[in-house]
């Protein structure tokens, strides 16, 4: 139902009761996930805005795009990105396998997705270690603070997702072949969302100072 139309009706005028809803009702879990993703998007969006504002102050040292930058070598981050993307792809495969009732394929894809996600988290941990080893601590300079904060928060969201993944995976091992689990598709959607969030964060954290200045201008915070 079109929202604007709905808000324009005169509800006091008599109307026949709508017919029984059949089948096509969007499940609550799907709506709930959409709302949750909107909340998480606002959360990361506000962190990004905070970064753009903070980056306009004179003591900001960019993480990339300047000589000797902390993130001059982005190769490890590309590897991690690939791992997260693979995890996302595997979950998508699990989702479509589950829909077709292919139990074995679902289980395999779910297991792969979990492994890739854990590998991504380990990889992010390794990048943190490299940061520490090169003397970029959380309070060393504001860009480093944001780096730890944003990657950490993203990692926590993925870790939270792994709890859901765990439940879905356990169910997949117990399930009978003819009952597809809608939870797998929801998991996949959450993963794709976190992949997009990560791509945005990755791009932002490795942006040269000029790009950040332009972005700040677009957002009206410069």
């Amino acid at each position: 139902m079109n929202l604007l139309n709905a808000l324009g009706t005169r509800p006091w005028l008599p109307e026949p009761a709508p017919p029984l809803r059949t089948g096509a009702v969007v499940p609550a879990a799907t709506i709930g996930l959409r709302v949750l993703l909107a909340v998480i998007a606002v959360l990361f969006g506000l962190f990004v805005l905070a970064l753009l504002v903070r980056a306009q102050l004179p003591d900001w040292q960019a993480l990339a795009g300047v000589p000797d930058a902390a993130l001059a070598n982005t190769a490890p981050l590309w590897v991690n990105t690939a791992l997260l993307a693979l995890s996302s792809v595997a979950l998508q495969a699990a989702s479509s396998a589950s829909r077709r009732g292919r139990t074995a394929a679902t289980r395999l894809a779910l297991a792969g997705a979990g492994l890739f996600a854990l590998a991504f988290l380990a990889g992010q941990g390794w990048v943190w270690q490299q940061f520490v080893a090169r003397g970029h601590f959380v309070a060393s300079h504001p860009a480093a603070s944001f780096f730890y904060l944003l990657t950490g928060l993203h990692g926590l969201h993925l870790a939270g997702g792994l709890i859901a993944w765990g439940r879905v995976t356990i169910r997949a091992w117990r399930a009978t072949p003819d009952s597809p689990d809608p939870g797998v598709a929801l998991c996949a959607r959450y993963w794709h969302f976190l992949l997009v969030v990560w791509l945005v964060l990755f791009a932002l954290l490795t942006s040269p100072p000029g790009t950040i200045a332009t972005l700040a201008e677009w957002c009206g915070v410069r």
């Binding site: 009702v25 499940p27 609550a28 799907t30 996930l33 439940r167 689990d181 939870g183 959607r189």
Partner: peptide, 15 residues
């Protein structure tokens, strides 16, 4: 994503 069970019960309750 983990609430398939509750979603199901609501499909029932609508009928």
């Amino acid at each position: 994503m983990t609430h398939a069970d509750t979603a199901d019960s609501h499909t029932d309750s609508h009928t």
